[in-house]
Design a protein around this nucleic acid. Structure first.
Lengths: 144, 144
DNA sequence: ATTACTTGTAATCATAGTAATTACAATTTA
DNA sequence: TAAATTGTAATTACTATGATTACAAGTAAT
């Protein structure tokens, strides 16, 4: 199991819109950088738009950021592209046997433990912003 | 996306083997509690066995714990049942365009960030043991 | 030794999510 | 009006999951 690449592609899109802010970031342009199909990009941009992270309008070429870079956390992107549902990073098997002491308690016992692990991961995503990503890319570019 | 229920089933199996330690935990018995097929249980027990967490032998009915409860962390189970690969909780899209500043850096920039988020989650799993799980189940049982 | 039971494993199947792709309506600009 | 772009729907191939059937191999009891 692995979390969908919509997340990494979403980050890629946002970073590139920023770095290309003097140009026009069409879905075709972004797709060429990500190396995928423009429709895939438009679908993800649609999700980023619903989350208020980018602006885009039918017929008008190019997407723009709707927020400051430092105001967009990786958690915002993660939620926007809908890769993991709340409290559902881990699956807990359903319908365990209620006539067994373990079966009738396992879900309520394991649930909070799994949630706390998920929250720890998400806390890290909340601490990171698109600005961190763009700065790191800029640094790597200057070195090369 | 959600992490396979092999993980929660693995925990269920280990907890039930402990709680049923005076009885014989056959795959059929365990399957009845989990509410799944005995073959699914045997496959997971095979993984737990490879990881040194349980003992089981062909022809001999019942699986037993191979370690103390307090010596088995949820991380041990998580690794045993192979639900998430190292550094691969998140997918990073491959083949981004090397002729774009973002494309040629995104993987090395995002990779460590994703890994740190994954490690934070795994750190929580390392802090929890099967003993915690069994104690919680026992507590819930006594109240009811 | 034969019978009954169990583990271990392979193979098959239905289902769900992913990512790529084609197609096209609706919108804007030149 | 023509060209370009966004936004969607529909289709396809692929992969992982979990359930299931089938069966070989091992063990224990009579």
């Amino acid at each position: 199991m692995s979390i969908s690449s919509r997340f990494s592609v979403g980050i890629h899109i946002l970073a590139l819109i920023e770095i290309n802010k003097n140009g026009i970031s069409t879905s075709e342009f972004l797709a060429a950088s990500v190396n995928t199909n423009p429709v895939v990009i438009r679908k993800i941009i649609g999700m980023l738009k619903n989350a208020g992270l980018v602006k885009a309008r039918p017929g008008i070429a190019g997407a723009e950021l709707a927020k400051e870079l430092s105001d967009i956390t990786l958690f915002d992107v993660y939620k926007a592209v809908n890769v993991v549902q709340e409290k559902e990073l881990f699956t807990v098997h359903d319908n365990p046997n209620p006539e067994c002491p373990v079966g009738r308690n396992i879900q309520k016992t394991i649930g909070p433990l799994f949630t706390s692990a998920q929250l720890a991961m998400e806390k890290v995503l909340k601490s990171l912003t698109l600005e961190d990503v763009v700065k790191d890319i800029s640094t790597k570019e200057n070195i090369c």
